[in-house]
Simulated scan of single mutants.
Amino acid sequence: MKRTSFARWPCSIARTMDLFGDQWSPLVLRESFYGIRRFGDFQQELGIPRNTLADRLKRLVDEGLLEKRAYQDEPVRHEYLLTEKGRDFFDVLAVMSRWGDRWLSGPEGPPVRMHHLDCGHDTHAEVVCASCGEPLDPARIRMRTGPGYPEGLKARPDVRRRFEDLTS
């Protein structure tokens, strides 16, 4: 079955899902944040088939989220390190974790907690406005076309109903 590509859609969510639209890629990155760097350790922690892991690591390297670096010469072995782009994905995982803790945890509570070393407290992700710091409420948000939105789509009536034009 051929997979539909969302890579060129004028939507950052669709483009992100095109990159992370499988169950393994976010989990490989999660393990990277836990300090896993080597192929065998990823495989052991995730129970992922070798060929699937090799495909996901290659894609994450090709997309610039991980850097592949040799740590041994004879035989050549590599480790996978988070890049700036990869480290920036932490926010996405933190928000997914918070949602899962709220809606998918059993009565025993969340399986993993984030502990903030700077203040010494357990914490969770909060999505707030980058300008005023207030929590984002979907009822108080309006989507607007951005500078990267295709001009040809802006003129379509169905698109204009969903978005406010950034230039208005």
Rank of each mutant, 00 (worst) to 15 (best):
K2L: 08
A7W: 02
S12Y: 15
A14W: 06
R15L: 06
Q23D: 08
Q23A: 14
W24L: 11
R38A: 09
F39E: 11
G40R: 01
G40T: 02
F42P: 00
F42Q: 04
F42C: 07
E45L: 02
E45N: 12
E45P: 00
G47V: 07
I48N: 05
N51H: 12
D55N: 13
D55Q: 12
K58H: 12
D62M: 04
E63I: 03
L65S: 01
L66Q: 13
R69P: 00
R69M: 05
R69S: 07
D73L: 10
P75S: 03
H78P: 00
L82F: 07
L82W: 10
T83I: 11
F90L: 15
A94C: 04
V95H: 07
V95N: 02
V95T: 09
W103E: 10
P107R: 15
P111V: 14
V112N: 07
V112D: 02
M114Q: 11
H115E: 11
H115R: 14
H116V: 06
C119Q: 07
E126V: 11
E126K: 11
A130W: 01
P135F: 08
L136T: 01
P138L: 08
R140K: 11
R142H: 10
R142F: 07
P147E: 14
P150V: 01
E151L: 06
E151I: 09
L153N: 02
A155W: 09
T167R: 15
S168P: 11
